[in-house]
Nucleic acid binder design. Structure first.
Lengths: 133, 133
DNA sequence: TTAATTACAGACTTAATGTATCCATGATAG
DNA sequence: CTATCATGGATACATTAAGTCTGTAATTAA
């Protein structure tokens, strides 16, 4: 079990956008360069962030991607959910059996991690170390 | 990202062993029946638990698998690590860059989940609901 | 209105991992 | 010796991750 590379790219790209250009749109090319990943692949990931409402996009010249909404509120969990989906990490006895105590404990442990991720904002990271990789 | 079915099988089998036969060895067949999974596949998973020192095995007639060591101490995390390995869920900038703040936060969140899993013992579950699936 | 720029969508490929099955081998009790 | 049991290796299949390629649509600048 591992987080996908896509999640890694998404987190770093969000940090990069916040640090470099929090207001003006940035094209996918410079973002891809910063991560050393292909632009077409990164654009797929960014589209997920758009659909999740974390960033917005604009076509045409001078277009690109831009942060949306209150930047201070964007959490690690928001980004991870946008990329990985919101399904539970642990599927148990047909996923419907709420009597299964193992399932309950696993869910509870997962929620501990999610709460931590929900309370961690990229904004804080950007403050501490704007150019952090 | 998801926990493997193998982890699910391992957790349920450990609970089953603790509830049904905490002392005498049990063959893989009845354990496999309880999970509705093939014996040969389950045996591969159990072998991992053996190598991790959580259970012990005995060949030959009247052999099988048996819990090992202090049963009250076996945690969810022990079992998960035995099956999934102990690698971090999040691999970042070449895995070596400890300056990466994103990596640090992800690690910290993961540790929150692990601490929860370390403090959750199957023994407690077995007490509460011996026949829990 | 045309041309350049940019995001988006779909099909596709490749590699890795998970989930199993089958069979041969080896250990052990009776 | 034989029946019973675990172990290991090879293999097969399905699913997912990771990435590429190409065309289409939208928008701006000239």
């Amino acid at each position: 079990m591992k987080y996908s590379k896509a999640t890694n790219y998404a987190l770093h790209t969000m940090l990069y956008m916040m640090a470099i250009s929090p207001d003006k749109p940035v094209g996918v090319q410079p973002l891809a360069d910063a991560q050393k990943v292909s632009p077409t692949y990164l654009s797929k990931i960014l589209t997920k962030l758009v659909k999740a409402g974390l960033i917005e996009s604009a076509s045409g010249a001078n277009g690109g991607y831009r942060l949306r909404g209150r930047q201070e509120d964007i959490s690690f969990l928001d980004i991870i959910h946008a990329v990985e989906g919101t399904a539970s990490l642990f599927e148990c006895c047909g996923s419907g059996d709420s009597r299964c105590l193992i399932h309950q404990e696993m869910l509870s442990a997962e929620q501990a991690m999610e709460e931590k991720l929900r309370n961690t904002k990229i904004y804080e990271i950007a403050q501490k170390h704007p150019m952090s990789r």
